[in-house]
Amino acid sequence: MLKTNVYFVRHAHSTYTPDELGRPLSEQGFMDAQLVTDIFKSENVDFVISSPYKRAIQTVEGIANWIDKEIIIEDGFRERKLAEGSVVDFNEAITKVWENPDFAWEGGESNVDAQKRGGEITMKVLKNYEGKNVAIGTHGNIMVLIMNYFDAQYDFTFWKKLAMPDIYKLTFSERELIGVKRLWERGVHNG
């Protein structure tokens, strides 16, 4: 039975701008991205996939350089859209969508919709890269929604405890999640 390892890499700290697509990593984010690359030097990654957002790409590009492969951009791993434009109170807005999975703010995605998108692209990865090790540059909310798609214990409380960056190795046997291991601890390798 072939095992597939999917490494979800939540992007490192970014410099806030209203430009979701082009927001770059901060100075701290670039330093942490180097630590992320160092962790992956012993993980035998075959492919690197990323959300189209710059901060996600910049977090995993060192891994792609290390294995000498191009980053495959997959729109399905972009962050969930919370609302059209900015929200007045982010904590209130994010809490409401997690409390009611079908609720969406105007112009935003509900948990149900975002999870469906994330689940579908992850299933595609599991099919196309079976037996491989795949690093995926992504974002906190969509990452946890995908993890929750496979195991309900990964919920809003879990999301609130994520670091930035963060790395979770999900091991699958075909489409079944059989193991989850955190690999990030301020650069300490937990592999």
Rank of each mutant, 00 (worst) to 15 (best):
M1P: 11
K3V: 13
T4K: 05
N5R: 03
N5K: 10
V6G: 02
Y7D: 00
Y7G: 01
F8H: 00
R10Y: 04
R10W: 06
H13A: 12
H13I: 08
H13T: 11
S14D: 03
Y16E: 13
Y16M: 09
T17F: 06
P18T: 02
E20M: 13
E20V: 12
E20Q: 06
S26T: 11
S26F: 06
S26Q: 02
Q28P: 10
G29P: 07
A33P: 11
Q34I: 11
V36F: 08
D38G: 13
I39Y: 04
F40P: 02
F40C: 09
K41C: 15
S42G: 08
E43P: 10
E43L: 14
N44Y: 09
V45Q: 06
V45Y: 04
D46M: 08
V48H: 04
V48S: 03
I49S: 06
P52E: 15
Y53P: 03
Y53E: 02
A56P: 01
A56Q: 05
I57N: 09
Q58G: 02
T59V: 06
V60M: 06
G62T: 09
G62Y: 02
N65Y: 15
W66H: 14
W66E: 14
I67R: 04
I67H: 14
K69T: 12
I72W: 10
I73E: 06
I73K: 00
E74T: 03
D75I: 14
D75C: 00
R80P: 09
K81N: 07
K81L: 12
G85F: 07
S86D: 11
D89P: 00
E92Q: 07
E92R: 07
A93V: 12
I94A: 05
T95M: 11
K96C: 01
K96T: 04
K96Q: 02
V97Y: 00
W98L: 03
N100V: 09
P101I: 03
F103M: 12
A104K: 05
W105E: 06
E106P: 15
E106G: 09
S110R: 07
N111G: 14
V112M: 07
D113Y: 06
K116P: 08
G118I: 13
I121L: 05
T122C: 03
T122F: 00
K124W: 12
V125S: 06
V125E: 05
L126S: 06
K127R: 04
K127L: 01
N128E: 15
N128C: 14
N128T: 04
Y129F: 11
G131M: 13
G131H: 01
K132T: 12
K132P: 08
K132C: 08
V134M: 01
G137N: 03
N141H: 14
N141T: 13
I142W: 01
M143G: 05
V144L: 08
L145N: 08
A152V: 11
Q153E: 13
Q153D: 12
Y154E: 05
Y154W: 04
D155E: 05
D155I: 02
F156S: 07
T157V: 15
W159T: 08
K161G: 14
K161R: 11
K161Y: 15
A163M: 15
A163D: 11
M164R: 15
I167C: 03
K169P: 07
E174P: 00
E174M: 10
L177Y: 00
L177S: 03
I178H: 14
G179K: 09
G179H: 03
K181D: 11
K181I: 09
R182S: 08
R182Q: 10
W184G: 02
G187I: 01
N190H: 13
G191M: 06
G191I: 03
